[in-house]
Design a protein around this nucleic acid. Structure first.
Lengths: 345, 345
DNA sequence: TTGAAAGCGCTACCAT
DNA sequence: ATGGTAGCGCTTTCAA
């Protein structure tokens, strides 16, 4: 049998297995691709007759045509994608709410928000991975992005890089969330209540040290120059660890403890109460984050209420930065903290 | 002054303000774009001399060149992007862990995982928004995607659509998470413990009904055909609502309650205890999700432990589906549930 | 009012 | 061993 090479294929008749393009729409509607683009994007600069519009829309609907975002932004030279790395640690309700607000606000400004799951990739490598997507803006929570990473992102077209973390990074805008103030508030509060031997719980979970270290430092700062002492108390998030800590509580001789947050407060309070330690008489306990559960504990938990920035604020900052990338990076201190005293201190 | 039209511009000398492309790298290294592509992608089919490779890499490094993912996948005709809509409701630690596992597993298989923030867009409209990104696979948690949406995604090139929810959707693979079993386990457990008048807490939060409705139905199913009754108890996630419910508790005449999950259990238990209702003597309480906090309550909370699929399993399913899109959609029941009895029942 | 065509950045085929 | 070049899907001048 003789092999006959295929002749140059004449335009194949609507291969249904394939993804429809604007050319397919044009063909079906009997117009040019340009016209299709005009119609589907409601181009106002050009007048297309109503019958033509109808034919084009009908054809698009029939084919189930969906424009190709990558092709579009390739042509346009820019995208409206705002990229956020998804945090690796389990996030609390506060952060969830913040993210949702942010997404809603940015959507209203016509940006597309995308969370990118970056697994244990280090610094610049992560920045490169993000840069490949050519986002118009990158919002980086926590630490872990250096000046090099910022440079990579900017060189690849990101018009705004915003860090949400404890410190500013060269070249990037910053929403400074300095958790020092959380520890500071807690420390000052305990000191005001007459406590002088203060323990500070430091969670064992990796990824949380970004927050726990400054919170500890804040407590230290609050009592600096006084006769009060601060004792670091490493604690894993499980019952046995809490029980062990509680067992040696009286030896520690502490009269107060700041527990990093309300969840750890609950964990430790339970262990202390099981051990017979009276709260707040023997030991005052203050948590942080003002979660619902704190109000449900007995005694009711005193806590540090955090004031995060609103998603709207961040969205506005992003939009401003995108519109004028040459403007000097802004750095806003955005973390407010105030103690809510209940019955545990 | 006479206006002279610009002559065709001779290759401009490295406009530093602009984003470097592979052409810039080629120019700097003194080779063609093809060679740059070969080198940077480690093309094995073609032999490039070591000195050339070095020059290319050096040029890329010097310019801070990062490839343009959109252009690449446009050319390739496909991407390795796995898209997940980010759930709008606050997610618990279980879900967070699952997502992280999934991302890690998919990254190992060389996919890029992206969470897309879809704000209150309805069904097909959301599907269109996702389809514009031309993901190779789409994973949709919860309900909210219909057969139409699946069709849109497939027609625009998605090789796998997987729903993670209560029911199968025509054309899509499914990880069936039928929360009936959770309610069923709880109901059966309470019945076994001799309880006959069972209350079921139904959270007020929108977005949670996807889970709460089947959990309620499960309880009903568990006691169907017996003399036990099931009473629906709507409850908002705040103290006042819980207090109001507790205030009329004795009127309700219930001897047991399934609280949707452990958090609502804590909320209700506190209100009941403040009201003097003895647990479990007067009223047995069972939660769900087996959170840490359940173990910290007094009495210790009985709960329904959920067995979610591992991220690895889902990653494998996705990979299989992408490799062979023609295969019939698989539907796996993946939600296991078993009661962990503690002291509250 | 509509169409032809260039070109965004990239890769892979085909020459040389 | 390296270069030329077509073309992925789209928008947008410029011409007709």
């Amino acid at each position: 049998m003789v092999q006959i090479p295929n002749p140059p294929a004449p335009a194949p008749p609507a291969p249904t297995g394939s993804v429809p393009t604007s050319a397919d729409v044009a063909r079906l509607a009997g117009v040019s691709r340009a016209t299709v683009s005009y119609v589907l994007n409601n181009a106002r600069a050009v007048r297309i007759s109503e019958p033509t519009r109808r034919r084009v829309r009908e054809a698009a609907r029939e084919l189930g045509y969906v424009p190709h975002a990558a092709a579009r932004s390739l042509r346009a030279g820019h995208s409206r994608m705002v990229l956020m790395p998804a945090p690796a640690f389990p996030v609390g309700p506060l952060y969830s709410r913040f993210i949702n607000e942010l997404q809603a606000a940015l959507s209203l400004l016509d940006y597309t928000v995308v969370q990118h799951g970056t697994v244990g990739v280090h610094d610049d490598e992560a920045a490169r991975a993000w840069a490949e997507l050519r986002p118009v803006a990158v919002l980086v929570p926590g630490a872990g992005l250096g000046p090099r990473g910022v440079e990579v992102l900017k060189r690849s077209g990101a018009r705004a890089v915003v860090t949400l973390g404890p410190e500013t990074v060269e070249g990037a805008h910053a929403l400074l969330m300095d958790h020092d103030v959380v520890g500071y508030s807690a420390g000052a509060h305990l000191f005001d209540r007459g406590r002088r031997r203060i323990g500070v719980v430091v969670p064992g979970e990796p990824g949380l040290d970004t927050f726990s270290a400054p919170r500890l430092a804040g407590v230290r700062a609050a009592v600096r120059g006084t006769d009060a002492t601060v004792t670091e108390l490493p604690l894993a998030h499980d019952e046995e660890a809490a029980a062990r800590l509680a067992a040696r509580w009286r030896d520690l001789g502490l009269d107060a403890v700041f527990t990093y947050n309300d969840e750890y407060a609950m964990l430790l309070m339970r262990a202390l109460q099981d051990e017979g330690v009276r709260i707040p008489e023997e030991t005052a306990v203050v948590g942080a984050d003002d979660l619902m559960l704190g109000r449900l504990l007995r005694p009711r938990l005193s806590t540090v209420h955090l004031e995060l920035p609103s998603g709207q604020e961040l969205a506005d900052l992003v939009d401003r930065a995108v519109r004028d990338p040459s403007a000097a990076p802004e750095a806003h201190k955005v973390l407010g903290a105030r103690v809510i005293r209940r019955d545990s201190t």
